[in-house]
């Protein structure tokens, strides 16, 4: 509010020539501009620099020659993408993981929050919430390492349980069929506490009078959850849903790189891991240009999705993401 007031005040000043105004502004606010310098340096060097370096997608970049010395090849790299037989599998794997993340992972914290909201004992409530939130702060390296020991075929707990029930131990980390379930389980484990914080906060804001009125009308617990609690958090849910659809292409690369190995590439290799591999872990020469071209296509699609998501969020809940 106050900021707005000030803005109009500034505009009311009669206009002077541009150069003079800039000079006066700098003289008056030079300290603020000095404060901006580190931020601008970061912006230019570390945020725009890389965007500029994306030009190598149109080159045949060679490590030694650098951007200025490498030959330009136009759209050759993009033509290669179309012809690459492996690309189809990568896109398929990426999309499947992304869709699973939305369809399977997304509803978990909503259900969890609904039931957590029903807990009356405050101590249980906060302890459960803290416990569910903890994995969010643990690094992917630790999470995957824990998973690795838990499902180890020779001593891991999971296989011990399977064997106890007469099953044969499973080599989870080396089975292509198990990669996606394990990835999703880790994702749920690691993130559902985060979304729960948001939903619980929205539920706290619900007017208790609504529940009291419902009690008067003889509504049971399920009816109250369904007709009061859930609708009250619907705008949060919509925003979260839109965010996750907008981010559909951003897989957790750390997790994938730590989890995958050559025996599960079939299901685990996604666009980002492939780009990482051909650039930083290549058995031949790193294919920087091709990797950048592949990633550029992905970034453009993701960018469009996020913009659409932002528009939708603004429309449905009067909040924008940025």
């Amino acid at each position: 509010m106050s900021a707005k007031k000030n803005k109009t005040a500034v505009q009311a000043v009669p206009k002077k020539p541009l150069g003079e105004r800039i000079k006066k502004d700098i003289k008056k606010n030079y300290l603020l501009y000095i404060m901006l310098i580190p931020g601008l340096l970061v912006l230019v060097l570390f945020k725009f620099g890389p965007v500029g370096a994306m030009v190598i997608a149109f080159q045949k970049f060679s490590a030694f020659k650098g951007i200025s010395g490498s030959p330009w090849v136009g759209l050759d790299q993009f033509r290669r993408i179309v012809k690459d037989p492996y690309m189809l599998k990568l896109v398929k794997n990426t999309v499947i993981l992304a869709v699973l993340s939305v369809v399977v992972v997304f509803p978990v914290p909503i259900i969890f929050s609904l039931f957590l909201n029903e807990v009356r004992n405050r101590r249980i409530r906060s302890t459960v919430q803290s416990a569910s939130f903890l994995p969010y702060f643990i690094s992917s390296a630790v999470m995957v390492s824990i998973l690795y020991t838990l499902v180890s075929p020779s001593y891991g707990l999971v296989n011990k349980i399977i064997e106890f029930f007469g099953g044969k131990s499973i080599f989870f980390m080396a089975e292509p069929g198990w990669f996606r379930p394990l990835y999703i389980i880790l994702q749920i484990w690691q993130t559902f506490g985060y979304s729960t914080v948001i939903y619980i906060a929205a539920m706290m804001a619900i007017d208790t009078e609504q529940y009291e009125a419902a009690d008067m009308d003889g509504a049971n617990r399920w009816q109250k959850m369904w007709y009061i609690t859930l609708p009250s958090i619907s705008s949060s849910v919509i925003v979260m849903l839109i965010i996750s659809i907008g981010n559909i292409f951003s897989v957790d690369l750390d997790r994938i790189l730590l989890m995958y190995n050559s025996s599960v590439y079939e299901t685990a290799d996604v666009i980002q891991s492939y780009v990482y591999r051909i650039a930083f872990d290549s058995a031949g020469f790193p294919d920087y240009s091709y990797g950048t071209a592949v990633n550029m296509l992905k970034s453009v699609i993701a960018f469009i999705l996020v913009i659409i998501a932002n528009k939708l969020a603004a429309k449905y809940s009067e909040t924008r993401l940025f």
């Binding site: 492996y86 599998k89 292509p176 050559s262 025996s263 590439y265 079939e266 290799d269 591999r277 051909i278 290549s282 058995a283 031949g284 020469f285 294919d287 091709y290």
Partner: peptide, 25 residues
């Protein structure tokens, strides 16, 4: 191998060797 051969072979074998092993397994 020259650069083109090495790059293309590396990219091809990166997925192909694993694919053939996975098939045999």
């Amino acid at each position: 191998y020259n650069e083109e051969e090495a790059t293309e072979l590396a990219t091809l074998t990166a997925s192909l060797v694993d694919m053939s092993k996975a098939g045999m397994v």
